[in-house]
Write a protein that binds this DNA or RNA. Structure first.
Lengths: 224, 224
DNA sequence: CGAAGGCTTGATCTCGGTCAAGGCAGGTGG
DNA sequence: CCACCTGCCTTGACCGAGATCAAGCCTTCG
């Protein structure tokens, strides 16, 4: 199980295989969304925690100059909606068709944590872990080269979405989404991918599915 | 009181004025550093939590191409060193002369949290809050324009370091540090500041001290 | 069938990185 | 005390990576 926030994605440290039980399991309600639907909007009250079950979503803010910044992608297992204040500061929208989420009452969760230090510890670790991820992301954004960012993104996706047995990585989001995630122009993302394909680092099964041929090269590009 | 991590800065929500007591107060040990000293290095074991009392520090990673990315600046009140794993992934170095820190045993803190849900909740909120800050920072880094980033940085500093009564903002760090924080070249930072000064948005008392003349314009530049 | 959205490629322009130089302050040693 | 050095900051000139503009292809959907 994993946790995130409207303002960030928290990844749950893997549960011990025979962990006694998950007190959160019981109290969520399921809902599913079509592609492009808004799950919660930018200035909505943050009364719920969500956990993405299947599909994919993007957490993004609108910038006043018309551009859009995608702060995080949410993948199956991610939990989000945790927030300090009462308001969200990012909108969350489904990316893939048939995206399903579990929704939890925030109040209920908080009092649950109050009485269950074990669970509280797990959530704390989730938060710390998520911070590590955001930090990596910041370092990625700090990179000057467009190609480096794209390589870093591919490695992140390959790592997060558990790769198929044959090494196929599926990108549930569009090139536009990737561009806004990496703070690049779509054209630049496209060109970078083309470059990587041309240099035999990756191959495409179709536009949204690729295989990493030369993992070493990918890491070398976004070295560190 | 405020908290951060080797991998992030956590800002403590303001304590209620007459809060009963702070269980963490008792168990820290004080140490002070000269400018440029290493407080903890990149792959050191993360056995302590730290809280910056006075001065300033930078949290940074070395990138293999020789560049340096500053992940966060630590200011008085910030707490850092919280970390999931056993290892740091960033070095922390003092920036200002006479930087002092309190150091806490990580083990001790964790068991303290285990037995004190109230404190645990506070730390959790610290983590959530810090995530909000990192998110803002990511949005800042996502901005294309150099001038926007610098404006955002100035607003952040004005907000974090409590401004003097007369509106003077002190930058404890060098232009090089600012550059590595914003992922820009030093020259670009310098030029941006010059531009802002030329357009009467800010004035300088000296290189490290400035006053925000036109707050509105600053916000307009990094709109949103 | 047409329209719309997603993706790629080409051409051009611009912002910011890089290189180079010089000013200024503080520290050190003669 | 001055001379020198070093680190920090600023400014100018140039160049290149990536944004922007434009066009065309493909798939999907009504």
């Amino acid at each position: 199980m994993q946790v995130a926030s409207i303002s960030t994605t928290y990844r749950m440290p893997r549960m011990p295989p025979d962990s006694p039980y998950d007190p959160m399991e019981s109290c969520g309600t399921l809902r599913s969304y079509a592609a492009g639907e808004t799950i919660c909007s930018q200035d909505e009250a943050a009364d719920y925690w969500y956990r993405l079950v299947s599909g994919a979503a993007r957490k993004c803010t609108q910038i006043s100059d018309g551009r859009r910044q995608i702060v995080d992608f949410l993948l199956p297992g991610d939990l989000f909606g945790l927030h300090v204040g009462a308001k969200h500061d990012c909108a969350v929208e489904s990316v893939a068709p048939d995206t399903t989420l579990l929704r939890y009452q925030r109040q209920q969760m908080e009092s649950l944590l109050e009485s269950d230090p074990q669970l509280a510890r797990r959530v704390r670790e989730i938060a710390f872990a998520s911070i590590d991820r955001m930090q990596s992301r910041m370092i990625l954004l700090g990179r000057s080269r467009a190609l480096e960012r794209v390589c870093g993104f591919l490695l992140e996706m390959a790592h997060r979405a558990q790769v198929e047995r044959d090494g196929t990585v599926t990108l549930p989001m569009s090139r536009y989404d990737i561009a806004d995630y990496l703070a690049l122009a779509v054209e630049t993302v496209s060109r970078s991918l083309t470059t990587l394909r041309a240099s035999q680092v990756i191959t495409f099964l179709d536009t949204r599915q690729l295989r990493i041929v030369n993992h070493r090269a990918l890491e070398a590009h976004c070295c560190n």
